[in-house]
Design a binder for these strands. Structure first.
Length: 277
DNA sequence: GCCCAGGTCAGCC
DNA sequence: GGCTGACATGGG
């Protein structure tokens, strides 16, 4: 059992795991969560300001996954005033640093789907192509296991048009035609551009991977929720690039962090205006 | 039934 | 470069 103390700002585990950045964690309804990191089962709960984990993984790996070394108080201080209401609602919510391959496929699945449906698609994918990891959990499928599938099987899981993208991506990665590891050595702009060479990956999915896996904390995925927030403040903007750049200027150096608070607040609190404008 | 969803793509201009 | 409609399917 590991007891981990976060850097300033504490942790809100329910918000962290339920805010739509990661899709394979399950709540027991009593504050406990179970999920998989690096293929290993993890049980997690918060006790006061600390994170308590039961897992075979070393503490350092858990700290990195939950970004426990981020100084949330310093990050909050960089946000504009109109993000503070969302901060107050989810103080302690942390971005996670999730596996690159899992993140990539998850957000390709997420295109034009709502969050409950994304959970279902990914659960089905893991059950069918992942490995049993104990406690009823299945690991995220490897590129090799997906590359051996066929499109009909994937469509049968309810993936729709996403099936072809996942299959093509798995075959390119498994066949060595696309090197995921090089992304981790790139700066934000290079990684964002390179990711879009993959089928089913446009600027929004690329930004999700940059933010939730590669740690580029100023990346702002402009989805339908973020677009509405941006256009409320800058009605003339149309292109993805323009809206993302506006959001980065508006939200500051940790724009991706701020974006996640606003996104979660907009979706769950039916908030309208977020304290500003 | 309807509209919408953490969009992307091909086919146009 | 920007705009439009198709894409599969389920949630609310």
């Amino acid at each position: 059992m590991l007891t981990l103390s976060p850097n300033r700002g504490g942790i809100d585990l329910a918000a962290t795991l339920g805010c739509g950045q990661v899709f394979q964690w399950y709540s027991d309804g009593a504050g406990g969560w179970r999920g998989i990191v690096d293929g290993a089962p993890v049980r997690a709960r918060q006790e006061g300001g600390a994170l308590v984990c039961d897992s075979p993984l070393p503490a350092g790996r858990i700290r990195a996954y939950f970004r426990l070394d981020d100084n949330l108080e310093a990050i909050y201080a960089s946000f504009p005033d109109d993000a503070q209401q969302a901060v107050a609602a989810f103080r302690g919510m942390r971005l996670v640093q999730q596996d690159l391959w899992e993140c990539l496929l998850s957000f390709v699945c997420a295109t034009n789907a709502n969050i409950p449906r994304i959970h279902k698609m990914i659960a089905a994918l893991c059950r069918r192509y992942g490995d049993e990891a104990g406690e009823g959990l299945y690991s995220f499928p490897t590129a090799a296991s997906l590359a051996a599938a066929n499109e009909g099987d994937l469509r049968a899981l309810g993936l729709g048009y996403r099936a072809a993208h996942l299959l093509a991506m798995a075959r390119r990665v498994d066949g060595g035609l696309f090197d995921l590891s090089e992304l981790t050595r790139m700066d934000y702009a290079s990684a964002h551009a390179r990711l879009q060479a993959l089928p089913g990956v446009g600027p929004k999915v690329a930004d999700c991977v940059c933010l939730f896996s590669l740690g580029h904390l100023r990346a702002v995925p402009v989805d339908t929720w973020v677009r509405r927030m941006v256009q409320r403040r800058a009605p003339g903007l149309r292109s993805y690039r323009a809206m993302a750049e506006f959001a980065q200027a508006w939200l500051g150096p940790y724009a991706g962090y701020a974006q996640q608070y606003l996104f979660h607040y907009e979706r769950t609190q039916a908030g309208w205006g977020c304290g500003g404008q």
